[in-house]
Computed example of a mutant assay.
Amino acid sequence: METRKDYISLNGVERVSLLLLALGEEQVQRIFEHLDESEIREIAVTMTNLGKVSSNVVEVMFSDFVDQLSTTGALIGTPESTKRLLTKALPQEKVAQIMEEISGPAGRTMWDKLSNINEELLANYLKNEYPQTISVVLTRIRPEHAARVMTLLPDSLVMEVIMRMLKMESVRREILDDIERTLRVEFMSNISKASKRDSYELVAEIFNFLDRQTEAKMIGNLEESSPDDAERIKNLMFTFDDMLKLDSQGIQAVVRVIDKTKLALALKGANDAIKEKFFSNMSERAGKLMREDMQSMGMVRVKDVDEAQNYIVITTKDLANRGEIVIRKGGDAEDALIG
């Protein structure tokens, strides 16, 4: 019964992919000759993600061919097996294109993938392209992503691109194909190298999510074993104390979106400079209400203050990642009380 349930759970494309994995390469080649490119691409994606399928499920699906398939055992869909089968049916260039799309940034089409590329990387590439090419790309990717990319392009170039977009008519298929081909060869093929995270930035990002006590302990241990690495990580970290480095516009943007109760709790344990930074960017009435809220809290635990401050740090970094603010970057006892 479990085998039949497993078989029933497979959708149509998964069953087709399993069938092709079980067949010989010549048979697969003949089948692919009757499919269009989009169908082959969908099957290739499914093959790659199919993983291991029990031979019992294979036997159920091919009940008319039990004798031939019973010795096949389990089938495993992998990038390598998919590429090998595609190579028998398609030109090498087309195989490379399909496999690159499968293993590259998320998305089924080139335009989906571009919408998942870091906006700075995409903007740095596009600023050297013709305005007409840029306008085509920006009209094909997601609007919210196009907006972020546009803000990173030179002002003079943006205006020209916008004018091209306004006057743009339907783009011929061959032009789109040419742009896609260029992007794939010149940009997407190098994107994994260009977007590789710096290991120090990654560790600093992780440390930002630690509670203050654990963070101090890990930084202390790292300072003992590798002081240079510790210093580099500390310089990359963004903590609540770094809110002082935000300009007035940035602080105001943060205040607009955060939970005011959590802000009051966070400021309860903040130093005077940070308190003044926030209060100076609130209206007199809002500042007065915030001070009253802080006073009414009485004694609060450092743990709760840390959690509130970490919430504000995460919110601030999220705003920065969306390009809404700019961060200019250059530290208890968990149950202690702050009056």
Rank of each mutant, 00 (worst) to 15 (best):
I251D: 01
N271S: 11
G287Q: 09
D211P: 06
I274F: 09
G220F: 01
V257Y: 06
T239E: 08
A264C: 08
V305W: 03
D318L: 07
G298N: 04
V203P: 02
L222R: 15
D229Q: 15
A266D: 08
S248D: 14
E292A: 00
V305N: 07
N310V: 10
A273S: 13
R291V: 11
L222E: 15
D293T: 13
S296Q: 12
R322N: 06
A273K: 14
F207Q: 05
E223A: 12
D241A: 15
K234Q: 10
I258N: 03
A216R: 12
I312T: 08
S283M: 01
I206C: 02
L267T: 02
E307H: 06
K275Q: 14
S283A: 02
A270E: 12
E307T: 15
E205T: 11
Q252H: 03
V302M: 13
K317M: 01
Y200P: 00
L246K: 14
Y200G: 01
I251V: 06
I327Q: 05
N271Q: 14
E201R: 04
N310I: 14
F238K: 02
V255H: 02
E224K: 06
N310Y: 07
G250Q: 11
N221M: 15
F209G: 00
M237N: 02
A253L: 13
I251E: 01
M290C: 12
A264Y: 09
L289N: 09
G331E: 04
N271P: 06
F240K: 10
V255I: 14
S283H: 04
G250H: 12
D228M: 01
V255P: 03
V300D: 00
V302N: 11
K288G: 09
A273N: 13
R322F: 02
V305I: 13
T315Q: 14
M282F: 09
I219N: 10
D242G: 01
I206L: 11
S199M: 11
L222T: 14
V254R: 10
V305G: 07
L246M: 13
Q309T: 03
E276N: 03
N208K: 09
I327D: 08
F278H: 11
K217N: 15
G330C: 07
V257F: 05
A273G: 07
Y200I: 07
F240P: 10
K275N: 12
R322C: 00
K245D: 01
I233K: 02
E292T: 02
